[in-house]
Design a protein around this nucleic acid. Structure first.
Lengths: 215, 215
DNA sequence: CGGGCGATTGATTGCCTTCAAACGTGGTGG
DNA sequence: CCACCACGTTTGAAGGCAATCAATCGCCCG
């Protein structure tokens, strides 16, 4: 479901002090948006669909570092190359703004600089929350935390359409597909959630989920 | 060992564009420097010793998010409260600069804003590297990565004095004390390191460690 | 010399992964 | 329109790795 008012503009709003016009692009499911090590030529904002950012170990294991939903900005770098890769989870529309435009705004305007600082700080905050989950939580707790995190983004809705596969969730939570699937099944068995289809989650008892989360 | 030239000044240098004078304080081993949720009144820089920043799950499990060595800045927040806690790993000297001074510099000077942005971006980068380790690496790989990370900070020295206990390392790597200890023992058995004492590590064969790290 | 704390080592448990198979669903071609 | 195929998901069984439980060791300080 695309919110049309968002689709109607090609602006990236970094904050009240910094809005820049960009161009819109569409990416097919699983298409690469940028790769780790590539020159960071643009900054990105999700208009519709979902994006994953990730990094790989040398032997090919994938760690998804974040999912990005409509309104989210990603691909922001200070150095001149991307420190991670980004792919479309589903078909999605993305707005691109040239790095040079962002840099120009930042160097001319402390408000712009502050907006970018706030954004980076929020990214840091979620990366730390993620590290806590990965370092100190069991499988059920991780999946519960994931569902609650996602539910918190869909304002006052107790139903979720997951854009990502079980494999994506597993690679985000540092688990395997099977373990994620088992956690979903257990939550359903305990009536914490309902699963009309594998991608559609009904939050039947969020407080039970919070109990699983135990954090 | 305290590097006296650093101890000679009470300045926090955020970057070439932003240096601020502060006051020095000493903290005893395990003393709290600030707590999660407290008002973020200062920004901190390690002069000597080591500091850990951490967060807790609701049931008391601890995740150390970073170790901070001489020269490192920590406790930087955009919101008005600390999002994590900080304690002295060893007895240490720390320089404090008032948040209001930092905010003032940032709002007056885009160079200052850029320095703070660069700093936050570096913190983000290490948080992401940490998440990759926590999410997708086994016990031996984590410990090897930790040793190499620390070794990379002590320029061209192949000997390390660990300021932190096995418990600290375990809580940083999402492991237990016993597992960390076993990894050290195995590395020693394989002649990748030597352990003249439990806190003193000699890097006997860094490339063997890199092989263990497998990333 | 004794006490306490951190570290190491060993034995066992338990959770998550791995391996394996079946299920369901959506898309395609006959 | 239906059969079939491919892929994602679920479920089951077995194995492995790290946690837990437990005991000993070593060291620093009193």
């Amino acid at each position: 479901m695309i919110t049309s008012f968002e689709a109607a503009t090609d602006i990236i709003e970094f904050g009240p002090q910094l809005s820049l016009r960009g161009v819109r692009m569409h990416f097919a499911r699983n298409a690469e948006i940028f790769g780790e090590g590539e020159e960071a030529e643009y900054v990105y904002r999700v208009v519709s669909g979902a994006v994953r950012t990730m990094r790989f170990t040398s032997d090919g294991r994938r760690q998804i570092l974040g999912f990005h939903l409509p309104g989210d900005i990603f691909g922001v770098e200070i150095g001149d190359t991307h420190s991670l890769s980004a792919e479309a989870v589903s078909g999605c529309d993305v707005v691109l703004v040239r790095r040079s435009c962002v840099d120009k705004a930042v160097s001319e305007n402390t408000g712009a600089a502050r907006a970018l600082l706030t954004l980076t700080s929020e990214h840091l905050s979620s990366a730390r929350a993620h590290a806590l989950v990965l370092g100190r939580k069991g499988a059920g707790e991780r999946v519960a935390a994931f569902l609650l995190e996602l539910a918190g983004r869909f304002v006052s809705k107790n139903e979720l359409d997951l854009p990502m596969s079980r494999a994506d969730i597993a690679d985000y939570l540092g688990l395997t597909i099977e373990t994620v699937s088992r956690a979903f099944s257990e939550f359903e068995r305990e009536c914490a959630i309902a699963l009309p289809s594998s991608r559609h989650v009904v939050m039947r008892n969020p407080s039970a989920l919070m109990h699983y989360e135990a954090a």
